[in-house]
Amino acid sequence: MEETVLVDRHGAWAKVTLNRPDRLNAFNEEMHLRLASLLRELGEDAACRAVLLTGAGRGFCAGQDLGDRRPAADGTPPDLGATIERFYNPLVRRIRALRKPVICAVNGVAAGAGANIAFACDIVLAARSAKFIQSFSRIGLVPDSGGTYLLPRLVGEARAKALAMLAEPLAAEKAESWGLIWKAVDDEALAAEAEALAAHLATQPTEGLALIKEAIHASAHNTLDTQLDMERDLQRRAGRTPDYAEGVSAFLGKRAPSFSGRAS
């Protein structure tokens, strides 16, 4: 039986592919456990300096496989909060906390939790044919996997409410123009462009990128004074890394830098 999530190592970066194409890569428990294990492994692997997340087949991820979360035969409703607590919340936290860039290549529909998992990644590319759908309201649910946190911060309250309440598909190009994603690219160019981006980021000062990620995430709830102090502290740490020394040396020597990605 083929794995529900595939991993392909490419030297200093890894490609992680959601692999239930017959179900538009909708999550079941097995897929959650496999993805959590892989992300934990890649997060702890210092040799892996960037992660690319994508989907197999014609979709990125349709969110939760509802066949796994239907009411019991006696009509008892499932505990959807337990599912979120056990699987989705740890997944979003893990993606946000990885101390290396996480690129998402949205190759088709990204619906429900699938859309919000994409938005939790650091840089999102999408095929022009891709669509993002906050499908929760269609079945009487609330956006999860960070949707109610990320959407208003990315596009503002008015658009966030409309996306969540109307559950209308949002085309990739409009998602780009609204600031939900980094870039919409031609379908046939998506894989190559996403892989090239992952390969590039894997050569960059990994610890410095991790500190950038940390600072930007913290800015959502910090005051200006707190953020200024955080920038000072993170800059102090960045200035002590081997990659800062290498970057300055390369600049002064008019050569391309060779970053190690190490924190010390």
Rank of each mutant, 00 (worst) to 15 (best):
A202Q: 04
I216S: 14
T226N: 15
T223G: 15
K183S: 10
H217S: 05
A215M: 07
A220L: 09
Q204H: 05
A210D: 05
A215P: 01
E193R: 13
T223A: 13
T203C: 07
S219T: 09
Q227M: 14
L209M: 09
T206Q: 07
W182E: 11
A210T: 01
L201A: 09
I216K: 13
D233Y: 03
A220G: 10
E195M: 02
K213L: 03
D233W: 00
W182S: 08
Q204W: 06
W182Y: 13
I181Y: 14
E193T: 02
A192D: 12
I212A: 09
R240Y: 03
H200I: 00
A194D: 05
R232Y: 06
D225Y: 04
A238M: 06
V185F: 11
D187F: 04
N222A: 09
A202M: 01
R232L: 04
T203M: 06
E188D: 12
R236F: 02
A198S: 10
W182F: 06
D186R: 14
T226A: 15
A194Q: 08
A199N: 13
S219F: 06
A194L: 03
E193D: 07
A218E: 14
D187C: 09
S219C: 13
A199C: 05
L211W: 06
D229T: 07
I212L: 10
L190P: 08
D233F: 01
L234W: 05
L228D: 15
Q227P: 06
T226K: 15
E195S: 11
E214G: 06
P205N: 11
L201P: 07
W182A: 10
L234D: 12
E188P: 02
A198Q: 04
D186P: 05
E207I: 00
A199G: 11
A218P: 11
Q227T: 07
T226I: 06
V185T: 05
R237L: 05
